[in-house]
Simulated assay, not measured.
Amino acid sequence: MIVSKKRFVSEEKKDMISAYLYVSPFFIIFSLVGLYPAVYSLYLAFQKWDGLAPMTFVGLDNFRVVLEDPLFWKSLYNTLIIGVMGTAPQLIVGIILAFLLNLAYLKLKQFFRVTIFMPYITSMVAVALIFSVIFSNHEASLANYTLSVFGFDPVNWKTSEWGTKIAISLMVFWRWVGYNTIIYLAGLQSISNEYYEAATIDGASKMQQLLHITLPLLRPFILLTVFFSTVGALQLFAEPTVFLGNNAFTRDEAMTVVMYLYRDAFRLQSFGTASATAIILLIFIVIASAINLLLTSRIGKKRGVRSE
């Protein structure tokens, strides 16, 4: 009996070691490309370093320099404005498109789903080229021609304050609306028709079914998209950088926080202030995500449908 017990414990330990070995690649890769850079960035935030000379401990000076820089607050303002203009509409339009794609009588569903999702998998360079042509400063560009049809003056999309923000926001919207639509569509298709049949029998209207059945059951998917959209909006970098090209880091109309961070690190060789900016951005992301999740978690939290 004693021998068999020892063998049992030995086999149990072998299984445990085997399990840890199977999952170890993930933790090793995460430690190298995720955890270590994050910890090192936190360390750099309290150092003065240009990438070559020895590091010098400066305490909270890097944070003071960043928070006292008007360009940082301008970049934060740009990030919030472009984020709201590009993110909020895509979530609303995504839900509407998901409802349309989920209609039983809609034909060519697969075609429309693939078409809507195509911008998400399109190369960022191709997207930037398309929008650079559409929002060219030339009077004959598609955007300016459309404005002229309605009697408006042409806009210098790449140099004006709001023209740049609108163009980049539309780029963000066009690229990500299909991604959110597919997530909402998956959520709608996971809702059983039995709920709607029971509500119809009880005399509930379509609006009541939407408010008391669809939105409450779709809430987890809404929370997911709001969280990812918030994080993505505050980390906006690729769209304005590619759209503005060489002028991206020399003008402040569309300078985002991540672009400000990148400029400090790789153009000014100030890795300390860049790391401090990353820590401040992380704090803003946590706060903004918490607020958005708190607001969106209330969606659909109403009393159920009452039978008449």
Score class of each variant (00 low, 15 high):
Ser190Lys: 04
Gly187Pro: 11
Tyr179Gln: 14
Phe173Met: 00
Tyr179Val: 04
Ile191Asp: 08
Tyr179Arg: 05
Lys165Ala: 09
Gly203His: 08
Ala198Cys: 12
Arg175Glu: 13
Ile168Arg: 07
Ala199Gln: 06
Glu194Cys: 00
Tyr195Asp: 03
Ala204His: 07
Ala167Gly: 05
Gly178Thr: 10
Ser192Asn: 15
Ala199Lys: 06
Tyr195Val: 11
Tyr184Gly: 07
Ala199Leu: 03
Phe173Gln: 01
Thr200Val: 07
Ile166Gln: 02
Asp202Pro: 05
Asn180Val: 12
Val177Pro: 01
Leu185Glu: 10
Thr200Arg: 14
Val177Lys: 00
Glu194Met: 02
Ala204Glu: 04
Ile201Cys: 03
Ala198Leu: 12
Ala186Thr: 14
Thr181Ser: 12
Arg175Trp: 10
Leu185Tyr: 07
Tyr196Leu: 04
Tyr195His: 15
Asn180Gly: 10
Ser169Phe: 08
Ala167Ser: 13
Ile168Cys: 06
Ile166Glu: 02
Ile168Met: 05
Val177Ala: 00
Ala186Glu: 09
Gln189Glu: 15
Ile183Tyr: 04
Ile168Phe: 08
Phe173Glu: 01
Glu194Gln: 14
Ser190Tyr: 08
Tyr184Asn: 03
Asn180Leu: 04
Lys165Val: 04
Ser190Asp: 14
Glu194Arg: 13
Ala204Ser: 08
Ile168Pro: 03
Gly187Glu: 08
Asp202Tyr: 04
Val177His: 09
Tyr195Ile: 05
Gly187Arg: 07
Met171Ala: 02
Val177Tyr: 14
Val177Arg: 00
Ala199Ser: 15
Ser190Cys: 08
Asn193Trp: 04
Ala198Asn: 09
Ser192Val: 01
Gln189Pro: 00
Tyr196Pro: 03
Trp176Lys: 04
Ile168Asn: 02
Ile166Pro: 01
Met171Pro: 00
Thr200Leu: 12
Trp174Tyr: 13
Tyr196Asn: 03
Gln189Gly: 09
Leu170Cys: 14
Tyr179Leu: 12
Gly178Val: 02
Tyr196Asp: 04
Leu170Val: 13
Asn180Ser: 14
Ala186Trp: 08
Ile168Gln: 06
Asn193Val: 07
Tyr184Ile: 06
Val172Pro: 00
Lys165Tyr: 07
Val172Leu: 12
Asn193Asp: 15
Val177Trp: 13
Val172Gln: 12
Lys165His: 04
Trp176Cys: 00
Ile201Thr: 13
Lys165Asn: 05
Thr200Glu: 13
Ser169Glu: 04
Lys165Arg: 15
Val177Met: 11
Val172Arg: 11
Ala198Glu: 05
Glu197Lys: 14
Asn180Arg: 11
Asn180Asp: 15
Ile182Trp: 08
Thr181Arg: 10
Asp202Asn: 14
Ala186Ser: 15
Tyr196Gly: 02
Glu194Ser: 15
Tyr195Gly: 03
Ile183Cys: 05
Ile201Trp: 03
Tyr184Met: 14
Ile201Leu: 15
Ile191Trp: 09
Ile183Met: 07
Leu185Lys: 11
Ala204Thr: 11
Trp176Tyr: 15
Gly178Trp: 06
Ala167Trp: 01
Thr181Pro: 08
Ile182Tyr: 05
Ala198Val: 13
Glu197Ser: 12
Trp176Val: 00
Tyr184Asp: 08
Gly203Leu: 09
Tyr195Cys: 02
Gly187Tyr: 05
Ser169Met: 08
